[in-house]
Nucleic acid binder design. Sequence first.
DNA 1: AGCACGCCGACT
DNA 2: GTCGGCGTGCTC
Length: 592
Amino acid sequence: MAARVARVVLDSPLPQLDRIFDYAIPDGLTATVTPGVRVRVPVRAARRVMDGWVLEVASDSAFDGVLAELDAVVSPVPVLTPEVWTLARRVADRAVGVAADVLRLGIPKRQARVEQAWLQSVPAVIASRGAAAGGVSRPPMTGTRLVVQAIPEPDGWLTMLAGYATPVVDAGRTAIIAVPDRVDLDRLEIVLAAAIGADRVIRLDAEQPPAARYRAFLAAASRSGVALIGTRSVVYAPAADLGLIALWDDGDPAFQEPLAPGVHARDAALIRQELCDCRLVLLAHSPSVEAERLVEIGWCERVPLASRRVPKVIPTAFQTGADRLAEHARIPSSAWRAAAEAITAGPVLVQVSRPGDDGPAGGERTAAELGKAFPQAKVIVSDGRNRVVSVASEPALVISTRGAEPAAAGGYRAVLLLDGERMLARESMRVTEDALRTWSNAIALAAPGAPSYLVGVSGPVARALAGWRQAEFLHEELSQRLALRLPPAVRTATLIGSPVAVDAAIAAAGIVGDDVIGPVAEEDGVIRTVVRFDYRRGGDVAAAFRTELLRHATGRRAPGKGRPPRPIGLRVRMDDPEPFIGERAGFGRIDR
DNA sequence: AGCACGCCGACT
DNA sequence: GTCGGCGTGCTC
């Protein structure tokens, strides 16, 4: 019997459509309907045609009814690989989300002209990829999962990433490397191109223009022996024969995906690593507490620094400087003198807290004051909006908000970390690990032997930084989270909806006692409750929530007084990075 | 989403 | 009798 049935996943955000649908393949389309291609299919109950992807082609269907026919094949290019489909399914299941939402992160919109050009240049690709559909055909490689401490020198992390990627790419396999932002990506692209050749580096960046993005996607889908580099969504890239998946600085909040279902790139990477048994590398100066947990449960292996050549970090309690200007600039006299001396030799970095934390332009104000104190020095200001990527080795005073520090040629001659108290005053479970991470990253920009001054901060975090023993601090932090049953010692889910729906979901998941936190009343009779549960129960809890979500997605609606009857459904958010901060902008709301 | 179906209360 | 409002269910 000829293959006449296509199994299709619909490109829809509706949970009730998050299943596989069978369609009959009309005679005219038998040749072009192959696994992975994008198709248009009728959805009768919605009275419209929707996009979808063909998962497989079969000879029969278990569906008890008359199959509708595929409408059209949008493009002959197999954009969805079996591995990415499995990844999306597992990621969505874990996050109580819709697989199509995850696929949309990894599969860019089609650009017809780009595709035409590409098809003409590589006509053989489609046939070979189509035939290989079925998945993993290589002998499995035993993947090792590593949490690696980066060399604390300028560009140390870039060198290390290139070192992990090169043997993988040389062996003809693919490496995926994810970094937090575009500036990191620019630098990685340059270093990697030098290490393995520009033709073996493919940049997949959600920020790049649609045509460039689709071109890069097609290149990635059709080649192995390349490095696929990008920001958080690159973890869903169509890698052929994946040998390595690496994240630089996994504690950076940019790895948290804002789009539904709000999955952290590290979690997706962990799932993908298991799926293809490749190597996983979480590289950082100061990794996340989540990474520390992975080490402590034995899931990952810790790789400490090879040499104990560590940065010179000097915590200085806040003291009023003798200099009036120093006092204004909130800099203790010892650090002030060091900066004054260092700036004769080269650039000096002054890290300040975010401008937003401090009224208007904290960085600018500091800059103005320091500029007056060092009238001969060039002052360079870098912040999130106006970011300076790099500075030369000439003397300059570089004032930067954290995370926006430029790289300095040859490294900074001194680093001053100001506003520590203000950074630690934020209301967040993660303030301290976040401060440790951003301080560590700034310190690593110093030239070998150059001093870094941590101003006005004492206690365990200052000691960890001074000894460059971040892991010790993270261990303590994790111990506290374990004692308090806070993430990442446990997982959480945030449930939003009518009290009936929320209570039913909690009961269905079997969560009781003080693992139920709340509820808190929102507007319009909607409540919000946070629940926590152990990792080993994650699968059951997610399945129970999905059942409840479906129950409320179809059927029951609010009494229709307003024109469109509004559903009081149920929303589920797994592993919100800040589950206990209610007033945070966008709380519990995942953009589609 | 968006539409059809069907169950009950009030009507020419 | 039957018209129609609105909860309910379904999408191959």
